[in-house]
Each structure stands twice: as C-alpha cells, then as structure tokens.
C-alpha cells in the first residue's frame, strides 16, 4: 500500500551550513545512501518523517477496508489469502514505523499524530469495501498503483526507507496478483458476480488514479524531492504508467474502466484518459470521504482498548527484572 505523502514536503528551515549542504547533495548525486546518524538538512529529515510515517499510517489504516471482509470471505482459500495479505499490511506498517524511528521520532508520537488527526494517510482507504468484488479491486488497482510508487522508493536516498521498501515490494508481489485473480473469477462468473466486478471497477478506478497525487503542475515540492532522490518519477509519469498497464488488464477480463474519454494513442503508445475530478480528492483529503470517520474511530478504539494490554506487559517485564535482580542479590 502507499501514501500520497510525496507532495507535502516541509518548508526549508533556517540557514544551514552551506558546505555541509553541498557535501550532502554531492553524496546523493553519487547515489550514496544517507544513513540515520549522517548529517542531513532539517527539511530532508522532516520531509522523510512525514512521508514515511504517512506511508506507515496508510498501511495500518489500509488493514481496515480489507479487514472488513476477513470474516466473510467466500471460500477458505480466499480467507487464508486475505488474512495473509492484511497481515502483510500490518508488517509493512511496522517496517515503515521502524524506518521513521531512525530519524528520531517515536512510534508513539507518530501514532498520536495520526489519532489526533494531525497526520495523514492515503485517502484511498476512506472508500468503503461494499461487496466482495472490492477486495479484488483493492488488490488489483490499489496495490497495483502502490507498486508503481513503491518500486522507485526502493532506490530512495534514505537507507532505512529504501531497505524497508525492498522488503515490502518483495512481500507485496502477491498482493496485486491475488486481487486480479479474485476479480477475474468474478468477471468470468455469474451475471451477479460480473455486475459486482464492474461495479467495483467503476468505484475504484478514479480514486486509484488519484493515489498518485496532484498533477505535476500542482505539486510544488516535486522538484526538491527529486533532487534529494526521495522521489524518482513525477506523479503524472507514474499515473500514466499505471493507466497503460491497467487498461489492457481490465479489457482482458471483459471489464471497462468508467472513462468515456479513454482511448489508445498510437503515436505515443499511451492510453489517454479523461480529466480527474480533483474536487472529490480534496473533499476526501479534507476528511469528508465516505469512511474517514469510521477509519479513525476504529484506530482510536483499538489504540484505547489496547492501552491496558501494553501497560500490563510493561508492568510484568518490570516486575520480572526486579525479581531477577533480587534473586541475583540474594545469592
């Protein structure tokens, strides 16, 4: 899964040592990784904290729409696949929180920012999973879009983030495939199943395209993130790549993306698509999507109800250390 955090970079801070800055940039230009204790401009650190933590939050919140079908999967095979997949999202959130922690922020602080509404997560998870077909669509489209974004992040200039992304990409390689398999099965099934599949594509198509973030013209921080090699391709480049890959996949199984302007441009070899309705994107971003409130309520509830469990384990560990110390002293 993926967060569209790439575009909200932090403003440059105060004046920083020009020589350090030049050396830092030279290192990045040589494709050397920046590691946790290396000197880095404050804006680089803050941009990464924001981006990685948003990415982590997206994985965790992203467990909810798919988790919605864990108890209703239509076969035991599908149930096992979905369980493994949703669990993977949790693992990916964990790897990403750990990568962000190397920048000097605690997981508790990141989680608090999320629960207080001060941190974002990918808007795509504010859409509902209404039918089983949505599970296929999420895997195929949402994970498909995510992979487009995540593969370049494996070469991100920040070492811990790049390493986390390598592991994540490796693990996610089955996510899109299982989704496409699930929706293919519907597309070749009964009339009711087919209807479900097309309906899911109708609802998830545009939000998936929006996952790549605003168009380059509206994305003021792209240039700096590219210079820092936190970002390797622009939003529009990745979006086009996604459309080019996905349209033939849809047609292959007899589904049609909900875009009357969709046409193949022989000359460029690209699929041309219609205008994206950014007002919808902005509404969801502003908290007015179909499930924003439910998602946050679910996270807050899990966090609040887990508090006594976390405290119990801490208290027991402390008592055990004390007992061990006393036993050692008594000898």
């Amino acid at each position: 899964m993926y967060t569209q955090g790439l575009n909200q970079a932090v403003e440059e801070g105060g004046p920083e040592d020009a020589e350090l800055l030049a050396r830092f940039q030279a290192k990045i230009d040589r494709e050397e990784k920046i590691e946790p204790n290396d000197w880095m401009p404050e804006a680089y650190r803050q941009t990464l904290i924001r981006q990685i933590s948003q990415h982590a939050h997206s994985e965790i919140v992203g467990m909810l729409p798919e988790g919605n079908w864990l108890t209703r999967a239509p076969s035991l095979r599908r149930k096992a696949i979905l369980l493994a997949k949703v669990q993977d999202e949790g693992g990916h959130g964990l790897y990403l929180y750990a990568a962000a922690e190397t920048l000097g922020i605690s997981r508790a602080e990141m989680v608090e920012r999320l629960l207080e509404g001060r941190a974002r997560y990918s808007s795509i998870f504010n859409y509902p999973t209404i039918t089983w077909a949505d599970i296929g669509a999420v895997g195929w489209l949402v994970d498909g879009a995510a992979i487009m974004n995540q593969i370049p992040l494996c070469r991100c200039s920040y070492g811990p983030y790049a390493r986390a992304m390598i592991r994540i990409c490796k693990e996610e390689s089955f996510h899109q495939r299982q989704g496409y398999e699930a929706i293919s099965r519907l597309a070749e099934g009964t009339a009711a199943q087919k209807r479900m599949a097309q309906d899911a594509l109708d609802r998830w198509w545009w939000p998936s395209l929006m996952m790549f973030g605003p168009s380059d013209a509206e994305s003021p921080h792209t240039a700096r993130s590219m210079r820092w090699k936190i970002k390797r391709f622009t939003n529009d480049e990745l979006r086009q790549k996604f459309v080019d890959a996905t349209v033939p996949q849809a047609r292959l199984i007899g589904l049609e993306p909900p875009d009357p302007e969709l046409r193949y441009d022989e000359e460029s070899g690209h699929w041309r698509f219609g205008e994206i309705d950014w007002s919808e994107f902005n509404e969801v971003l502003a908290g007015n999507g179909p499930c924003n409130r439910e998602r946050m309520a679910a996270r807050r509830k899990a966090h609040a109800e887990g508090a006594w469990v976390r405290e119990a384990a801490t208290a027991h560990a402390r008592k055990q250390r004390r007992r061990t110390a006393m036993a050692a002293a008594a000898e």
């Binding site: 864990l70 693992g91 959130g93 899990a302």
Partner: peptide
C-alpha cells in the same frame, strides 16, 4: 481473524 487490524499493538496484531 476478527481481531486483525484491531489488535492492542502492531506486533500482537501480526
């Protein structure tokens, strides 16, 4: 499976 996504801590959820 009803717990998944709602566990008391990420590690325990997994």
């Amino acid at each position: 499976s009803e717990w998944v996504g709602h566990g008391p801590e990420l590690e325990e959820d997994i």
